[in-house]
């Protein structure tokens, strides 16, 4: 009891305060490292699976994929792309024949950045699929860019020559036109603009149709092992 009273009366030394916080910080740090290390494999696997699913969705008929980057004037296959390096994905069918590219692209939408992935067949110069990966568009209005099946379906055979144009709903007459969503004009135009910009940026970098990089066997093995 006496010791308690003394402890209460005298303020604890600064050393004790520093030590308490240091020990708390140390334990907290160890706990955070522990949870980070133990969840990292699952998180990475989830992200890889999401990407594979998105690639297979925007490129119908694809069963294999590999990452491609543009280095020193040509498109090459890489095992692990560098950070911040633009990557596109080559999609290949069962017979390991090239089908098309899945191109990630992003740009400003109505609320925040919209990130999308679109499938592109260089031979036909057509967009064959579009998937919104990230968006914060208004629920009920702008979010139709990924909830409206008619709009998403409109990207299944869309010519990029000379460029994609969003037109008023029901007035699509040319292969490069798509019906915009009523009530979400800004969001739908944003998606079209993002694809056009990405297309312009990549056009010069893609090899001529028919001479795409072949599927690397090692890559196939690793992706199959990862399934």
């Amino acid at each position: 009891m006496t010791t308690d009273t003394i402890k209460q009366a005298a303020p604890p030394s600064s050393l004790r305060l520093v030590l308490t916080l240091a020990i708390a910080g140390l334990i907290s740090g160890i706990a955070i490292i522990g949870i980070y290390e133990s969840t990292l494999p699952t998180i990475t696997a989830n992200k890889a699976r999401e990407l594979r699913e998105a690639v297979f969705k925007v490129l119908p008929g694809v069963s294999q994929m590999q990452a491609l980057v543009y280095r020193d004037g040509e498109l090459i296959t890489v095992e692990k792309p560098d950070k911040d390096e633009p990557v596109i994905y080559g999609g290949y069918d069962e017979a390991h024949e090239f089908v098309g590219y899945a191109m990630p692209a992003a740009g400003p939408g109505f609320q925040d950045t919209i990130a999308i992935l679109y499938g592109y067949k260089p031979g036909e110069k057509q967009v064959v699929g579009m998937e919104v990966l990230e968006s914060r568009e208004t629920p009920g209005l702008g979010d139709k860019i990924y909830k409206d099946a008619v709009w998403v379906g409109g990207f299944s055979a869309l010519s990029v020559e000379p460029e994609i144009v969003a037109v008023k709903k029901g007035t699509k007459s040319k292969p490069n036109e798509i019906d915009a969503i009523t009530g979400a004009t800004i969001s739908s135009k944003a998606v079209v603009r993002i694809i056009n910009e990405a297309h312009t940026a990549w056009t010069g970098k893609l090899p001529p149709a028919g001479s795409e990089p072949p599927l690397r066997e090692t890559e196939t093995a690793s992706t199959e092992a990862g399934q």
């Binding site: 334990i27 907290s28 706990a31 955070i32 949870i35 980070y36 969840t39 699952t42 998180i43």
Partner: peptide, 14 residues
Amino acid sequence: ATFVTIADYTLLAL
């Protein structure tokens, strides 16, 4: 904050 970080990563993984 430690518990929040644990919850954050657990939700992200699950």
